[in-house]
Design a protein around this nucleic acid. Structure first.
Length: 810
RNA sequence: GCCGCCAUGGCGGAAUUGGUAGACGCGCUAGACUCAAAAUCUAGUGAAGGCAACUUCGUAACGGUUCGAGUCCGUUUGGCGGUACCA
């Protein structure tokens, strides 16, 4: 009888469904384990063979943990708002809900066909009003806590798409041929900066890839320094700057403002007005990208104004330049060309004075006429801090500034507030209205959700507003509390909103009274293992941490961090070692693989390809290896007629067989538990085991039972089928994971390697745990070894127990 | 430029963390079965030399530590990911 994978897989998927095998319920008698995949966006293209990699890995963990006695939560849902469906709607007139639902159905069908042990009763989608009700509810809490505000800021506006774009979305759209311009617009912002320090510090308590933590640290970008006030000559006002090197104040020979700095217009003299205005205009038209990537050469103009250096009362000129960014610090700097590369470049180009105030300590030399010296050193030409090392000099300067009221020690973060509104139709509406006098009013929680209206025209209305603004029935509403006319906010939330908290909703998906039931939250949180690609290392993972901390502060969640352990799976490339893409024509569809080889082969092969974290190419030939392996297991248990093989008998295994079994249990268990998620070696251990036992004329049943249990997380359908054919009526899902006896793993006779000067020359078989002297003696009697020592002087002898002997001769 | 990671046969990758390099699989070669093919099974498969037992070389390159290095240290080269005027 042949291994009919498609019949077997359909049968067991139906079995798991009808028996609700993977439904998770709170059970305080068991330890819980929450294993979660990154929230998938159900694209219309469906899955490619790269997707099942992570899903298979988490599924193996889920199934393994169940067998280890854990109560496992393994849910799945859809991050379903998003631009592609909306763009498709503009083109075709088909409602995004319809296309999105179709994509979801397809994704779900594909995921189910892989045989994932997901509790589908907890399925959620961000586009479901029952879900986005609570996304809106969270926004209300953010607003009430003062963490949401409106600001007029320059944004990346894409006229073709009719929306603002997040900075990270810009390069992708430009590549597609869209244009992006900067334009100031009134936008909703979230004060993530208020949580900067905690987001930074709490990284230390997370078991995350070091690289990802480092990226978040860099993104948050903490730097310590001082703010300093420079009085403006001729004005009763000061210019505030931030510096990380207050010790170089004496070397500040000019100031630079960002072109957008509010003081620029005020201080510019009539003589320089035209030049300054022209410069400002050019700067305004440049996108962030142009300003950063293309402009290596410094530009700038003099404003005609002067500031007074508070440490020496020298008057120094104030320039404007776009190398100073309005978004960081105060948008103004003191320029110390001797000790800052950018300032040095600028000063050299515009012939501004360069004054040395730090000398390298020790014998090093620096020449500030050739390049800036940016390291720490000893202060010179700097009044009362002369001779001090940088660290001390900084401290003393700050003390002095604080004493005189001229400045203050302070901390700056690179992290900026989160631009939280999009001019899109397909997103969560904001739960607020504008009253007639223009004031913003939160809607009461009991009117949630604010539903997306039905629309027929998805095109942008050309005013820079979302298509929602064109639906007057919806926009014009009344204040539910006063009955007075009001207008709705027509911006929607970005896609990140829904994915910021979905891991909480899985715990209690149908609750219409609260975000998540307290008991459920306490029982299931935090997520024990969170798995997904490295591309979300900063944004999603930072945003979600931010919301979680807010919810923690408000008492809605009990943990400071949502995801204790994070793992990034590597990418699966096309067979040509390029990224899989339609345009390259190298996309492999899992549906085809499942049709040809079955889901178990797909799962097993995805794991066998290499360590989970590695980027590795797909191989159409390679899958045949694991397919043969599964066939071999089938033939091991089932004979030609479809009966249980007569070789399998209820007998006690011999010592050798038993040892191999225990060794396999040990190695597979160790490699599943391994933090590096190297399931490729688990598969290879199982192959070795099967190769070994299929040689036997009589196969003790315990060897087969053990095999099926060890196999079941990896190839669950085949394991279930053979398990049931062997006469077990219950699913293998909750069978106890096999235990091994370390004493039975060791062989009584071990091979000890004989080395001469570190080179392997011979091997001897010897009893386990012999004293070193005995092993050495035996080794020396070995014919080959003897021929190498004869006539030589033995310098050193090294014995590694049960492993090797190395004799050093001269 | 800066930060992080990586480099092992024709290919994907193993190597108990300093102790037999190349497990397992793909591919390839030969054989068995077959009218033939597929499937399956057996043997071989890092390179060079030798009839052979064996010998020498070999983990990107060079150097170091060590009885012993794919593994640790230094330098260099190549690749991947992130970031980019953050004062």
């Amino acid at each position: 009888m042949k291994y009919n994978f498609s019949e077997i897989e359909k049968k067991w998927q139906a079995f798991w469904d009808t028996n609700k095998t993977f439904a998770a319920n709170i059970d305080h008698t068991k330890p819980k384990y929450y294993v979660l995949d990154f929230f998938p966006y159900p694209s219309s293209d469906g899955l490619h063979v790269g997707h099942p990699e992570g899903y298979t890995a988490t599924d193996i963990i889920a199934r393994y943990k169940r067998m280890k006695g854990f109560n496992v939560l393994h849910p799945m849902g859809w991050d379903a708002f998003g631009l592609p469906a909306e763009q498709f709607a503009i083109k075709t007139g088909i409602h995004p809900r319809i296309t999105t639902q179709k994509s979801i159905d397809n994704f779900k069908r594909q995921l189910k066909s892989i045989g994932l042990s997901i509790d589908w009763s907890r399925e959620i989608a961000t586009i479901d009003p029952k879900y986005y009700k609570w996304t809106q509810w969270i926004f209300i809490q953010l607003y009430k806590k003062g963490l949401a505000y409106q600001a007029e800021i320059p944004v990346n506006w894409c006229p073709e798409l009719g929306t603002v774009l997040a900075n990270e979305e810009v390069p992708e759209q430009i590549e597609k041929g869209f244009t992006v311009v900067r334009r100031p617009m009134k936008q909703w912002m979230l004060k993530i900066t208020e949580y900067a320090e905690r987001l930074l510090i709490d990284l230390d308590m997370l078991d995350w890839p070091e690289s990802t933590k480092e990226m978040q640290r860099n993104w948050i970008g903490k730097s310590e320094g001082a703010k300093v006030f420079f009085p403006l000559k001729g004005f009763d006002e000061s210019l505030e700057i931030f510096t990380t090197r207050p010790d170089t104040l004496w070397g500040a020979t000019y100031m630079v403002l960002a072109p957008e700095h509010p003081l620029v217009d005020k201080i510019t003299t009539a003589e320089h007005r035209t030049a300054v205005d022209i410069y400002k205009d050019t700067a305004k038209q440049k996108s962030d990208l142009e300003r950063q990537a293309l402009e290596k050469d410094k530009t700038g103009v003099f404003t005609g104004a002067y500031a007074v250096n508070p440490v020496n009362n020298e008057e120094i000129p104030i320039w404007i330049s776009d190398y100073v960014l309005m978004g960081y610090g105060t948008g103004a700097i003191m320029s110390v060309p001797a000790h800052d590369e950018r300032d040095w470049e600028f000063a050299t180009k515009f012939h501004l004075p360069i004054v040395e105030v730090v000398k390298p300590a020790g014998n090093e030399k620096s020449d500030i006429t050739k390049a800036a010296f940016c390291e720490e050193g000893i202060a010179v030409n700097s009044g009362f801090i002369n001779g001090l090392k940088t660290e001390k000099a900084k401290k003393k300067t700050i003390e002095w500034l604080e004493e005189k009221g001229l400045g203050k020690g302070t901390v700056q973060y690179k992290l900026r507030d989160w631009l939280f509104s999009r001019q899109r139709f397909w997103g969560e509406p904001f739960p607020l209205i504008y009253l007639e006098d223009g004031t913003v009013k939160l809607l009461p929680e009991d009117v949630l959700p604010v539903m997306l209206p039905e629309v027929e025209n998805y095109k942008t209305i050309g005013t820079g507003e979302s298509p929602l603004a064109g639906i007057s029935d919806w926009v014009n509403t009344t204040d539910p509390e006063t009955g007075k006319p009001a207008k709705r906010e027509t911006n929607t939330m970005p896609q990140w909103a829904g994915s910021c908290w979905y891991y909480l909703r899985f715990l209690d998906p149908d609750n219409d009274k609260e975000l998540v039931n307290k008991e459920a939250e306490k029982y299931w949180m935090p997520v024990n293992l969170y798995l997904g690609g490295a591309e979300h290392a900063v944004l999603h993972l930072l945003y979600a941490r931010f919301w979680h901390k807010v919810l923690f502060d408000l008492g809605y969640v009990s943990t400071r961090e949502p995801f204790v352990r994070l793992f990034h799976q590597g990418m699966i490339l096309g067979e040509d070692s390029n990224k899989m893409s339609k345009s390259r024509g190298n996309v492999v569809n899992p549906d085809d693989v499942i049709n040809n080889y079955g889901a178990d082969s797909l799962r097993l092969f995805e794991m066998f390809l290499g360590p989970l974290s590695a980027t590795k190419p797909w191989s159409t030939k390679g899958i045949e290896g694991v397919y043969r392996f599964l066939n071999k297991i089938w033939r091991l248990v089932i004979d030609e007629e479809g009966n249980i093989s007569k070789k399998i008998q209820e007998v006690k295994p011999e010592e050798d067989a038993e040892r191999i079994m225990h060794r396999t249990i040990m190695n597979v268990t160790r490699d599943i538990e391994d933090m590096d998620m190297k399931f490729n070696t688990c598969v290879s251990e199982l192959m070795i085991y099967v190769n070994e036992i299929s040689r036997y004329d009589v196969i003790p049943a315990v060897l087969v039972n053990t095999l099926l249990k060890l196999l079941s997380p990896f190839a669950p359908h085949l394991a279930e089928e053979l398990w049931s054919r062997l006469g077990n009526s219950a699913t293998i899902t909750f069978e106890k994971w096999p235990e091994y006896n370390p004493a039975k793993v060791q062989k009584n006779i071990v091979t000890v390697v004989g080395q001469i000067n570190g080179k392997v020359r011979s091997k001897i078989e010897i009893e386990l745990d012999q004293p070193d002297e005995t092993v050495l003696e035996k080794m020396k009697q070995d014919e080959k070894i003897r021929s190498y020592i004869e006539g030589k002087q033995i310098v050193k002898e090294i014995v590694v127990k049960n492993k090797l002997v190395n004799i050093v001769v001269k």
